[in-house]
Design a protein around this nucleic acid. Sequence first.
DNA 1: GAGTGGTCTAGACCACCAT
DNA 2: TGGTGGTCTAGACCACTCA
Lengths: 237, 237
Amino acid sequence: MKRKYDLIYDELAKQIQEGVIKPGTLLPSEKELTEQFETSRETIRKALNLLSTHGYIQKVQGKGSIVLDINKLNFPISGLVSFKELSEKMGQRAKSHVESLELLSPGPHLQEQLKVHEGEFIWEVIRVREIDKEHIILDKDYLLQSKIPNLPLEQCKNSLYEYIEGELGLSIAFAKKEITVEEPTDEDRKYLHLNGFSNIVVVKNFVYLEDASLFQYTESRHRPDKFRFIDFARRNK
Amino acid sequence: MKRKYDLIYDELAKQIQEGVIKPGTLLPSEKELTEQFETSRETIRKALNLLSTHGYIQKVQGKGSIVLDINKLNFPISGLVSFKELSEKMGQRAKSHVESLELLSPGPHLQEQLKVHEGEFIWEVIRVREIDKEHIILDKDYLLQSKIPNLPLEQCKNSLYEYIEGELGLSIAFAKKEITVEEPTDEDRKYLHLNGFSNIVVVKNFVYLEDASLFQYTESRHRPDKFRFIDFARRNK
DNA sequence: GAGTGGTCTAGACCACCAT
DNA sequence: TGGTGGTCTAGACCACTCA
């Protein structure tokens, strides 16, 4: 059974997206919504808080919940555009190549980043992302073998996240991203079509599971002209 | 009177920061905390949710709230490092120069970005940020005069946010950031010490007030070698 | 099965906005 | 002053983890 406040969130989000509720107007009051959805006020408030953190509405005390123009705010919410999502938009114009898939003993740099134990092995997946026949992104993923015993090559061609969360049932709780700009390495030059660009945008991603253990480190290296990151930050109350 | 859940949040956050509660251990259960703080469970849960979104703890159903290692996760929470915060860390090594402060009628580009009305004027503030005698960041701020009638030069030397939120009492609700990499403009070359770098990291920032109206557009142009952005994303329930 | 966090309720009082 | 959202309570039941 799905949560009640999720259902209410879905319903209201849909109405806003479809324009049934217009941007700039006010949502029905929380009291009215409790009657409309036959639930308690706290449940309505949970749904509204979700709408708020996802940029659908803005709550103003004493006034009401203002419906925002979702198109102007321009999603995704927090820059978490995976290549999978991107490629779905791009259709046939986007491709992914697995350049390498290995189980290896980590060197000092990776030991530091992943905090692996002595004698533990890690998976290394190197993938190149192609858009319109240009090689634009170099993705290097490192995963603890203790958490992921097997990593089929087939899965690497698609989304690692889908395999990890879907098939393995591991649940990703939070991630830390760090964006910097660096000079291209020999590896970058080897795999990417740099077109003379002398910088690479490096996105380092540290992924943690629900039990708060780190289990994946990803380095995503982008050609600068095709890089774009969007962040949507809300002041917390 | 401060909110109860804020007080509880402050107290627990302090204990975690000071190491009174050790990373890796579990917080007292919600039931115990209700007794300890003499409050209801929902109030405790609000405090714990704050700790969670700020990266202090990780809640696990059926188990408890795991205390995270705040130093490993390495703040700030969502990359909102203002130059003010940075300069406080850098002390005398960081400086800010106001290059220009003008009230102007917006051209088509700005009209588009800020969605200003016909005949409305906007403030333009251009500032250069210096670290260790190098000019590294070019900040261009645009603010609606209808929201900010006066903008003293003195304030521009420090933090615009402090003036806006502190003295004017306007309340910033949320912001959208967009990070891209571009080629330097003549303006970049004029104001910044580019040291031969052929790219500029551009951070566009759209700031909205509590009534959901856009009132500021900022373009922050960084020399790539000194740029660093950190994002801390949590899966929402 | 005991203990944990997650959801949900029904009601109270307060702070803020409009008129 | 009436209506709005914000805080807080006391209690219920469910889902999950672990021994």
